[in-house]
């Protein structure tokens, strides 16, 4: 079976700075891939390319056989309108470093917003689903709270529920615990572990080596805009082959 996500030769520049210099990555269905590497390596940029928050300059990313941001027809790739890209993004959930919950809506409304407004679900059904999701992330008692009334860890768990409400095939996590106080990291990682166990396909940009070791099926190590080493955590983390990987891990441990 083909990989759920397949990136080939992805390049991206901001002005004159080339941030991605040909990224290759394949993620199978149900697989958890952790992107590790020093800051500035392009991990977050690559992740944002997967759901077309950034437009790539060269290369191609396929999600479930569909080229992201394009429509394939007559042997050509037609660039999609923003409205059509929005349709593609329904299947790809994303969790941000700084949560980005909608501050003017309650936790529950944050979760129902997508299903009701984007998928056109019946409000009552969406509410029931959302309550189940909030329960899953351990926050059913916070359904009516506004984001500002929640801790960082709680906000991030609501953000995960909001992404899950769209029933995505793929979840992208962009340093989901980096903005959290240390004592709140665990509650968010726990939710992610549960998600991985339930078979969700996940790409996680993280600095949590422990999480990568215990949850990831595959670790991809990025340096200077390219993936330099991939493999199971036991191989990449414990027996790295590339000098850059060895240096990085030596610093982190």
């Amino acid at each position: 079976m083909a990989a759920l996500v397949e990136a080939v030769g992805v390049r991206k520049s901001f002005g004159h700075t080339e941030v991605l210099k040909g990224v290759d990555l394949a993620v199978d269905r149900g697989e958890v891939v952790c992107l590790l590497g020093p800051s500035g390596a392009g991990k977050s940029t690559f992740l944002r390319c997967v759901n077309h928050l950034e437009t790539i300059d060269a290369g191609r990313i396929w999600v479930d056989g569909v080229p992201v941001g394009f429509r394939q027809a007559h042997g050509k790739l037609y660039e999609l309108r923003e409205r059509e890209v929005a349709r593609q993004r329904r299947d790809i959930g994303m969790v941000f470093q700084r949560f980005n919950l909608f501050p003017h809506r309650t936790a529950l409304e944050n979760v129902t917003e997508g299903p009701v407004r984007v998928l056109g679900l019946d409000r009552a059904a969406a509410r029931a689903d959302a309550m189940a999701l909030l329960d899953r992330v351990g926050l059913s008692d916070k359904a009516l709270s506004y984001p500002r009334q929640l801790s960082g860890g709680q906000q991030q768990r609501v953000a995960i529920a909001r992404a899950l409400a769209m029933e995505p095939k793929l979840m992208l996590f962009d340093e989901p615990t980096s903005a959290l106080d240390p004592e709140l990291v665990g509650e968010v990682l726990d939710v992610m572990v549960g998600l991985a166990r339930d078979g969700m396909t996940m790409i996680v940009v993280t600095h949590e080596i422990g999480f990568a070791r215990s949850v990831a099926d595959q670790v991809a190590f990025m340096v200077d805009g390219a993936v330099v080493e991939t493999g199971p955590p036991s191989q990449v983390l414990d027996n790295p082959q590339q000098p850059r990987t060895q240096q990085f891990l030596a610093k982190v441990y």
Binding site: N51, A86, R89, R90, M94, F96, N100, V118, A163, M166
Partner: peptide, 17 residues
């Protein structure tokens, strides 16, 4: 905040929505 627009995009919202 631009993160708000990104969050909206990430749940499949169109620009108008």
């Amino acid at each position: 905040d631009s993160g708000q627009v990104e969050a909206a995009k990430s749940i499949g919202m169109t620009p108008a929505l």
